[in-house]
Design a protein around this nucleic acid. Structure first.
Lengths: 230, 230
DNA sequence: AACTATCATTTTGCATACAAAATGCAATAA
DNA sequence: TTATTGCATTTTGTATGCAAAATGATAGTT
């Protein structure tokens, strides 16, 4: 009895899990900046907890690469160097390519219809030069393809990497020309998916990521390094 | 001064890092079996430490997927289900494919010579039906290709996944026929590398991994599940 | 002035202590 | 017998305390 009702059990959220989540959002929102030392005591006071669960949370984030732990010298948000970006984007490209292949194998007609809808909504925001909404839909499309691949391990590996480059994503479409290119690439991506041409979709997604890497690198070059990003 | 000498600093090894490493080897050596509960106190006594660093180590291993942490119910080694294998092998295939592409771009002649040497040594052990030595060299080849790709992030993501499937690897070449096939595939892999044909090498490495998945699945099917593996 | 040396302070790493939750078992009821 | 309840024990989650290492400021030396 209670078969279907109570199987989704209610769990009191564990403190260190809470802390992992809250630290992640702090990092993503730029409230914790790269390379600045954050004493454990400060974070403890901020969250109103003791050091034990905080330290457990830091270990988890460190093993994700989001923060760096220097022995006896505290934790700091990992600074993403151009070299890191150059390593990470090809990996993400390979994983997105795989997601595309699997998605072509497994997508239902309604999956594709959903992605098509997202695509045309995105195209609209592109035409209206609405960066933020465009960006949201762009991410939604890639997430939906990833989800359609129905490989949770793939998703979680990808998300781990995505978190590390999150703060430079917005640099990708900073030039108008690159933005137009990206939109063009997305047209081809949609077509490959509609044709369920997995091989083609894989190639497109991979090169899409590599173009993005190029754009990010150019943008990084022009902000001359010292400033607050990365 | 001391520019080059002391930059590789001598660090007193931190306890929780030690513990992460030791737990990993315990798991790989099969001394900690999947799904059996291991109370923290037992592990503490085994290592002669307190619970704090142990718990920090467990958090790290959990975020790698090697162990599973159930809230208030302890830690246990993650059991690799056939479904997990089916998710993980394609990911590893995509990553190995990328390693092959990059290796072709970056390999020096001596890198290739080294891999060739490993290959022919492996062929010798194959001919002599020496499973263990064959297996060692097989791994060495794949590691060397990965290393030649010169992408440390790629290596570390790959290693993380590799750790999770480690205990089923040895099932891959359990049938003689599969073993011959694998050797045949390796001939083609070596040739593509010698030709520095990155695209071809990527395809070969990927399908090599997928064949391995097939072999592992068949082997898993025939051992009827209950026994100690996975 | 620049470079060391010294020492108080801060911060980290680990051990211990205590509270809440889960587990196991015996006693009871159906 | 089979379930179920209640309680003692074990185990986990978090807080605190203590020792070692790092940091920072001051004083002394060249």
């Amino acid at each position: 009895m209670f078969a279907s009702l109570t199987h989704t059990q209610i769990r009191k959220p564990l403190l260190h899990e809470e802390i992992v989540a809250r630290l992640r959002t702090l990092i993503f929102h730029g409230e914790l900046l790269p390379d600045v030392r954050v004493p454990e005591k400060d974070l403890c006071q901020r969250f109103g907890i003791s050091r034990t669960p905080l330290r457990e949370a830091l270990k988890v984030l460190a093993s994700e690469g989001l923060i760096t732990l220097l022995p006896n010298r505290g934790a700091r948000v990992t600074r993403l160097t151009p070299a890191d970006a150059e390593e990470l984007f090809p990996i993400m490209g390979a994983l997105e390519a795989l997601s595309g292949e699997l998605a072509c194998l497994r997508a239902s007609d309604s999956d594709i219809a959903e992605i098509r809808a997202l695509h045309y909504q995105m195209a609209l925001h592109h035409a209206r030069v609405e960066h933020h909404q465009y960006s949201q839909l762009n991410q939604a499309i890639h997430r939906k393809i990833m989800e359609t691949a129905r490989n949770p391990s793939l998703t979680s590996v990808y998300d781990g990497l995505e978190g590390r480059v999150r703060r430079v994503r917005y640099l990708a479409n900073s030039s108008r020309q690159r933005w137009n290119e990206a939109m063009f690439e997305h047209e081809a991506i949609l077509r490959a998916l509609e044709d369920r041409d997995g091989e083609q979709l894989a190639v497109l997604l991979k090169s899409h990521l590599m173009s993005k890497l190029g754009a990010v690198k150019r943008a990084l070059g022009s902000i001359s390094y010292s400033s607050e990003c990365l």
